Amino acid sequence: MSVAALIVAAGRGSRAGEGIPKQYRLLMEKPVLSRTLEAFLSHPKVQKVLVVIHPDDQDLYAQSLAALPQELIIRLLPPAFGGETRQDSVRNGLEMLEPLAPDRVLVHDAARPFVNAALIDRAIDAANIWQAAVPGIAVTDTVKVIDADGKVETTPDRSMLRAVQTPQAFDFATLIAAHRKAVSLNVRSFTDDGALAEWVGLAVHVFPGDAANIKLTHPADFTGAEQRLKGQPMTYVTRLGTGFDVHAFGEGDHVWLGGIKVPHDKGVLAHSDGDVILHALTDALLGAIADGDIGTHFPPSDPQWKGASSDRFLAHAAGLVRARGGKIDHLDTTLLCEKPRLGPYREEMRRRIAEICGLKVEQVSLKATTTEKLGFTGRSEGIAAQAAATIRLPEVSDES
């Protein structure tokens, strides 16, 4: 069976920060794409390799090839040019491969330079058994399915979930036919070929992936990759962020605090649900990564956030920390009000905050104090909260 590898390298990689597209950035003096290509060009079962690039990147592509051992270049075909979407780019590459009529094709992201020979072997074996197969690794975090308002609808059994990677493996004729059907119906929304195969009715199987086969997406990923290639552990810098929020009382029979609906003889005046604890924590996390405040990400002038559940705001901020390769160490909040009392709800709130942020309960602290009848809180005109968040971010050198 003849095998071709199609490397998708036409993206702009904007989430990786400013500069040239991420697939051309250097890792230990060698472009990311060069490392990815070397894995496939040196594999004995891969006969041909084709890269899909952006038309503006031809010079960068040539520089990546110059970093490769020249004896490997003979397996490399002239590049194809990408389209408006990843799906378009893959289809363009498949069309260029068709005259060679390979039996199997492996589709791989250029920004996964740690793909190894064993994973490529498993992909080829899977393609020889099934028409469509994707590598996957077990999901270690609990996953929630939510509705448009951020309310949890269901919690899937994570033992049945897999995080999908590349190289994805296919019968060539079957995959190109699926792409042609999609374009004929003007369906162009697929971000991976496994999903496209599912759409046309193929049975897509999952074979064991590799946790080390990471995709370089954010600046922190490059820092970690450099450390890995140097054989050094990742080093982190500790950051502290603070947040404060206040809302006036109004008509109502409850307030939202710490993600919990608390009975009260008043409500709060707010654009969202007015949860001062979650709002303060959100700002604390955003402050720790120096990424604006809650109003920057969820402006009150935007009607979509009217009445929104504040757990969405906190989950977003926690996700931004993790997107940068960061770790949340501790969250601490103090509630300032005369009433309602925090005590009866403290532990439930701690559990809810931990769940939103993917933490252990012992990483969440909640306290409350009155202001001795002083100020607006002392007069029971409103409620306030102040918060602190301690996180660790990958340490980035001045040269990176």
Results as ranks from 00 to 15, higher is better:
241 G>T: 08
242 T>P: 09
242 T>M: 06
243 G>L: 07
244 F>K: 14
245 D>I: 00
245 D>P: 01
246 V>M: 09
246 V>I: 10
247 H>Q: 13
247 H>S: 01
248 A>F: 00
250 G>N: 04
250 G>K: 02
250 G>W: 05
250 G>R: 09
251 E>A: 12
252 G>H: 00
252 G>D: 03
252 G>A: 10
253 D>C: 02
254 H>R: 02
254 H>G: 07
254 H>N: 03
255 V>Q: 04
255 V>D: 01
256 W>R: 08
258 G>Y: 00
259 G>M: 10
259 G>F: 03
261 K>L: 09
261 K>D: 13
262 V>P: 02
263 P>L: 04
265 D>Y: 02
266 K>E: 06
267 G>K: 00
268 V>T: 08
269 L>N: 13
269 L>M: 14
269 L>W: 07
270 A>H: 05
270 A>C: 04
270 A>Y: 05
271 H>W: 04
272 S>V: 02
275 D>N: 07
276 V>W: 03
276 V>I: 07
277 I>D: 02
277 I>R: 01
277 I>M: 05
279 H>V: 15
281 L>E: 08
281 L>F: 08
281 L>D: 04
281 L>R: 04
282 T>F: 01
284 A>I: 07
285 L>R: 06
285 L>W: 07
286 L>Q: 10
287 G>P: 11
288 A>M: 08
289 I>K: 03
290 A>T: 11
291 D>P: 07
292 G>M: 06
293 D>V: 03
293 D>R: 12
294 I>N: 09
298 F>E: 03
299 P>H: 02
300 P>M: 13
300 P>N: 14
301 S>D: 10
301 S>E: 09
301 S>L: 15
301 S>N: 12
302 D>E: 10
302 D>K: 12
302 D>C: 15
303 P>R: 11
306 K>T: 15
308 A>L: 14
310 S>L: 13
310 S>E: 14
312 R>V: 15
314 L>I: 13
314 L>T: 01
314 L>G: 02
315 A>V: 07
316 H>K: 13
316 H>M: 15
316 H>Q: 09
316 H>E: 15
317 A>D: 11
318 A>V: 09
318 A>Q: 03
318 A>D: 06
318 A>W: 03
319 G>E: 14
320 L>D: 02
323 A>M: 12
323 A>L: 14
326 G>H: 08
326 G>N: 02
326 G>Q: 02
327 K>R: 13
327 K>S: 07
327 K>Q: 14
329 D>Y: 13
329 D>S: 10
331 L>T: 04
331 L>H: 03
332 D>V: 08
334 T>C: 05
335 L>S: 08
336 L>N: 09
337 C>I: 01
337 C>V: 11
337 C>M: 07
338 E>F: 02
339 K>M: 12
341 R>S: 13
341 R>G: 01
342 L>E: 05
342 L>G: 05
342 L>F: 10
342 L>C: 06
